[in-house]
Nucleic acid binder design. Structure first.
Lengths: 237, 237
DNA sequence: TAAGGTATGTGGTCCAACCACATCAAGTAC
DNA sequence: GTACTTGATGTGGTTGGACCACATACCTTA
């Protein structure tokens, strides 16, 4: 076992046993190195990995924001990993979009009508109505869909949704630039958002799921993404 | 921007531009450090992250297996990340199981009947019929479900399924030890596997999805996992 | 009392050296 | 000529030490 993996194991054990929890601070790098009888380099390599995984955040200086503290950002890890593998051309963008449709459809189908996330989605929709700046609109759009994903109350699904979005963010940006008439598209997106939220308020999760799927697939198809046969219909004998 | 992130960016650019691709080898650490005018330490930190993400594999010595080569193992990254966040108690196991049901149900519902993965699943099922060793049986079971997930032909879904399985592997192992009558459970699992495969061969993906969901949820419930209301039924007005 | 400088502790970076390992090539014994 | 030994080479793995930038807390001084 390589040295940094030993450190990694030690920290993971501390997390599992609860001796280290959210907001907790790791010992200083030099201290930890001495405790585990390894070099500071190895400790740092382990911390780098945890940082990339969204488990800790390293801050210099003194005070409350300094040191290495435990956070919880699963989206960061999944997002970076997906983005890197997209770069290697091993994860087709079409598969990512298809997976996003799958997860988000499921989330809205199971959304709890009284979820605070839905209230947030409604508020975001109001802002989008007034918003005229393209970049601001897209940022609000991201948060809107994220709120939808959170409405089902499944943290894993929310994290995966967020990471998928992050992984193809730059790709989606390029697609948007190809749109012939942004104002018309934005108007359609607003309309579809209203429809989704209306279906949810009407306790019709199934209908909302269909609308979400059409909403996402329609956008990518209009912007020119190659098809991946994402027909949600299931074959029946 | 921290130094190792600069290295990370450089490598990611090489991947995106295609100058580095699957099976390709990175320059030696010392060489790369000199090229980018950074210390070897920073290069190593970047490589560590890529290794944790399942993008590269570092091998010592000489020859074809040596050096840092580009691989493609998205499951590794997602699995480690999920496992770590489970350790921080931020990702409930119930959510992971629920997500697994969601993904695997979708995969079998959209499985292509002529998929090679289905043939592999059938072969694995044959082996499980004869297998009497608990550990071997569980190993085959993992591969069986992985094959099901691959049958839909979506790499992202397959990778996520594999990582979910990996993240809760140790947890599932403990649950198995709690089972009152393993032989009876194993017999039931075999029977359910046959039913799933039969539904698929009958081109009834919807039925197969229902069976898969019941199969997974039934196992965890029997072993004592707390419920997470994973009723797949969608509310209708 | 208020302002400024200093001590302390943190992560960030770099360097130089050494180790373990795996291959390959030259040399050597048969 | 063939087979074995031995060293050279190049890879990542690890270590210790040094210095920097930064942010806070404390202490001195006006």
């Amino acid at each position: 076992m390589r040295t940094h993996q030993l450190v990694l194991q030690w920290i993971e054990d501390q997390l599992s046993s609860g001796e280290l929890s959210l907001g907790g601070r790791l010992p200083a790098e030099r201290t930890l190195a001495e405790q585990l009888q390894v070099s500071r380099t190895s400790v740092r390599e382990a911390i780098r990995i945890l940082e990339a995984m969204g488990v800790v955040r390293a801050g210099v200086g003194s005070g409350p924001d300094a040191g290495t503290v435990v956070i919880a950002d699963p989206t960061a890890a999944l997002g970076s990993a997906l983005r890197l593998h997209v770069a290697t051309s091993h994860l087709p963008v079409a598969d990512i979009v298809q997976t996003r449709v799958l997860l988000e459809s499921w989330a809205v189908a199971r959304a709890r009508t009284d979820s605070p996330a839905l209230a947030e989605a409604a508020a975001l929709l109001e802002k989008m109505e007034a918003c005229r700046d393209t970049d601001d609109f897209l940022a609000l759009d991201v948060r809107f869909h994220l709120a939808l994903a959170e409405a089902a109350g499944n943290v894993v699904v929310s994290a995966m949704m967020g990471s998928l979005r992050e992984a193809i963010q730059s790709y989606a940006g390029k697609l948007t630039a190809n749109l012939p008439d942004w104002d018309a598209t934005a108007a359609r997106l607003r309309s579809e958002h209203r429809g989704i939220l209306a279906a949810l308020n009407n306790h019709d999760g199934g209908r909302a799921a269909e609308l979400v799927a059409a909403h996402i697939e329609g956008y990518y198809k209009e912007a020119g993404l190659g098809p991946k046969d994402s027909d949600p219909a299931q074959p029946q004998p």
